[in-house]
Design a binder for these strands. Structure first.
Lengths: 198, 198, 198, 198
DNA sequence: AATGAATGAGGTTTCATTCAT
DNA sequence: CATGAATGAAACCTCATTCAT
């Protein structure tokens, strides 16, 4: 399996660095090869084409991402606690890797429609986790019974994503992790966690 | 004033159509000129360069957008009513122009960093409107007093944007406008509109 | 006759200024029109095309040039005196019009082969004057009998031209006119004015 | 070192042929590539841009030029002999390569100011050689003590250059080399080689 | 497995010239 | 006579991908 060979990860990590430093449109294959310490042609022994590098990058990094979040969530009971963990992990994982944050929030979004569709495929795993939390919340009465799962998921992902993007665009000047509590509150209130005043 | 001449709008509208149909990277100036019914060179009598077409497109369309929303909002009293109008207008304006929706949600995001920075400048006007609503809501007690304005704004914009993007990516198969009420509810609950159950 | 109308000269003078200030390749017809205070299209009422402006410019300016030199030379007796006057006038006329000097020595030489051939046609009048001086010098014994007229003419023109070009390239920092005597000496010595040592 | 690779010279030689045959402004990169038998893109593995081809062309050819002349001159004793050798080599090298003569005397002069400045840098090496000959001539009494070195150099270069240009413009119909003796005589007389008659 | 020299398609922009007013 | 908005052809350069070694 190619994906397990050392050069596979080596090239992906090089891609993250090169894209973060130079931007998506200035991340030529030759630059990535140089950063990875291999010849241009070697890239094509591990990846079908340039798009494949980027999709693999997202799969690899986001795969880890989802796995870690699922592990942490498994240990929590309530939907609200799970959501808190999700936000915290989402923030902490990106805050821990500045280059990756730049790549996922800013640079990779400049890719063409086809590539973004394939990236969205990868994202679906993450969105399913969110859906499960919301469904659980509705079932056990934490959240409103009339909550639309898809819309709630869009609020959760949209809010988290917009928060991280704003943080990256502000050059990560403030502490993203400190926002966890307030963002979590926005989300669970939006989900009707506390019953509207009766 | 160039921006008032008929060909200025003519070229911008042509750009929207061409980008929506062919994608950002396949929207050559010659295609836009052909669609607009002018010569390639004529484009450059009205725009400094290709980037200027795209920025002007955004300014023109989003400018209208913000103006219309501000007008409608002015007639409303409460922050919740204003937010409802904002969501409704945002959805209805994009639902009314399928091509424009594709361009703003998917295609224009592929532009390079410099162009996106200039687009963000235009967006700031929109975000200010959101901020004002949130501030009013906090002041008159509709919203939580401990609500962080910036985070709330990010939730509002992130949720709306994510909702529209999902709708566009699903090829606009369902009625975006029908989501208005539920999205609005998510947002005002998130803002603590109804006091947590006491 | 078009050439006598005021706008004809007006446009030519504008061309000299624009070319001197912007360089040959940045001297667009529209810039010349603006400098001349006329519309772009008006240029084409007085000149067949852009090349015609440049050839006319050279004819007009160099025509004056040759006329003035011929007048001055007519009053001199010996070939050596005539050559001195030629050098002096050549230097003084270009030193008096810095823009024209830049245009003739640097900018107009960037024109294409065809244009340069037409410019050379105009130059022939000047070269004939030089030839006549050299022939007279040979006939009356001032110059060597074995002097090749064509080569001598090339020395005269080449030396004067190179001197002026160097002066222009040095941004006209020193006094060109002060070189007259020494340049003259180079030329008449080259022509064998003083008999080789016997 | 790129400059030593065979394709470097191959492309430069192709550029000389293409420019000589088509003229400076009709010498597209694609034509040069075709003539050199390489792909368009290959050009850019050896040259930064089109201008770099032309500067390198001049450096390469004129570099050889200056080297050869310096070698030949080293074997001569007097300034007059050295000057004779300079004229002879200058004429013979250009007479031996008709295309190069066209390129250096006519076509390359159409280049823009920046390119010509870089070409002039290369020329300075040639002019230094001339200066040294003149200075030697003055020191050992061959030439006039009051000879201005800079003006004399301008005469030498101006005369030689004008002679070659005229020969090229006359389509190289006559034998340039046969002019060597007479041109040499013009130059050394101009330098006062034979004392003026006393 | 690894290399890296070579390939070649494709698009933005300028500007001389025209012609309807 | 004069205008100036409109035209449209034409070329440099980049970079993902290949393949002989």
């Amino acid at each position: 399996m190619k994906r397990t060979k050392p050069k596979f990860k080596q090239i992906i990590d090089a891609a993250v660095v090169v894209i973060a430093e130079n931007g998506y449109h200035q991340a030529q294959v030759s630059k990535i090869a140089k950063q990875a310490g291999v010849a241009d042609g070697t890239i094509y022994l591990y990846f079908k084409n340039k798009e494949d590098i980027l999709v693999s990058l997202f799969q690899e990094k986001m795969g880890n991402f989802i796995e870690k979040i699922e592990e942490e969530i498994a240990g929590k009971q309530t939907a609200a606690e799970k959501l808190l963990m999700l936000v915290e992990k989402h923030f902490s994982l990106l805050a821990a890797d500045h280059d990756l944050a730049i790549v996922t929030q800013l640079e990779l979004r400049q890719s063409n429609k086809e590539l973004r569709l394939r990236i969205n495929e990868v994202l679906k795993g993450y969105l399913k986790v969110v859906d499960q939390i919301i469904i659980q919340g509705k079932e056990n009465g934490e959240f409103r019974a009339d909550l639309d799962v898809r819309l709630a998921r869009q609020m959760v992902f949209g809010t988290i994503d917009e928060t991280v993007t704003t943080w990256v665009m502000n050059e990560q000047k403030y502490d993203l992790l400190k926002l966890t509590g307030q963002v979590h509150q926005l989300l669970i209130y939006g989900c009707g966690f506390f019953k509207p005043n009766s």
